[in-house]
């Protein structure tokens, strides 16, 4: 641990007075469209080798994690919830997959079933539930399989268009 302690001391010694950014405002829950297409002003990175003390906080790039400030309830986790609602007009026995990775080609979609977030049987064509996605995921593929050996029916969900809900009819 001596080495680590030494490093912390040196990190403290090199701390610069780049003020922390943000903090203060009460957090509002993000609307889906905001999250998908954030209109964030580009932040000009300050050269890390030449610390500046006069830059206004609003445009400051914090260079040390220890200089950041976060709200008490900001949990440093990376997920959000999406609701799933399936209402098929069919009594056929069916199976539903919702997956993260897929490719489209002229012959249809190919899905990586190792990337699924939900797998469920469809009782009477109906399902309702919630899935949890990591923040980098904005698109999913929904596949409805019938136990016939035929290829499934696919539907792509785009968060920017449909928001935090997946509806399959």
């Amino acid at each position: 641990m001596n080495i680590k302690n030494l490093t912390i001391i040196s990190a403290v010694a090199f701390l610069t007075a780049c003020g922390g950014g943000g903090g203060g405002d009460a957090e509002t829950s993000p609307a889906p469209t905001q999250a998908v297409a954030p209109t964030v002003t580009a932040v000009t990175p300050a050269p890390t080798s030449t610390p500046q003390v006069t830059t206004p906080a609003a445009t400051t790039q914090v260079s040390k994690t220890s200089d950041l400030k976060a709200d008490d309830d900001f949990t440093f986790t990376s997920s959000y919830q999406v609701s799933v609602s399936v209402n098929r007009n069919s009594q056929e026995s069916a199976y539903l997959n919702i997956c993260r990775e897929f490719k489209s080609s002229p012959t249809g979609y190919s899905v990586n079933y190792d990337s699924c977030v939900l797998q469920t049987t469809l009782e009477d064509g109906k399902f309702a539930g919630e899935i949890t996605l990591t923040n980098d995921i904005n698109e999913l593929i929904v596949s409805v399989w019938l136990f016939t050996g035929n290829d499934p029916i696919h539907q792509v969900w785009d968060r920017a268009v449909e928001g935090d809900q997946i509806v399959v009819n």
Partner: peptide
């Protein structure tokens, strides 16, 4: 039903 986080 099985839900996976983050995936299978």
């Amino acid at each position: 039903t099985t839900v996976y986080y983050p995936s299978v």
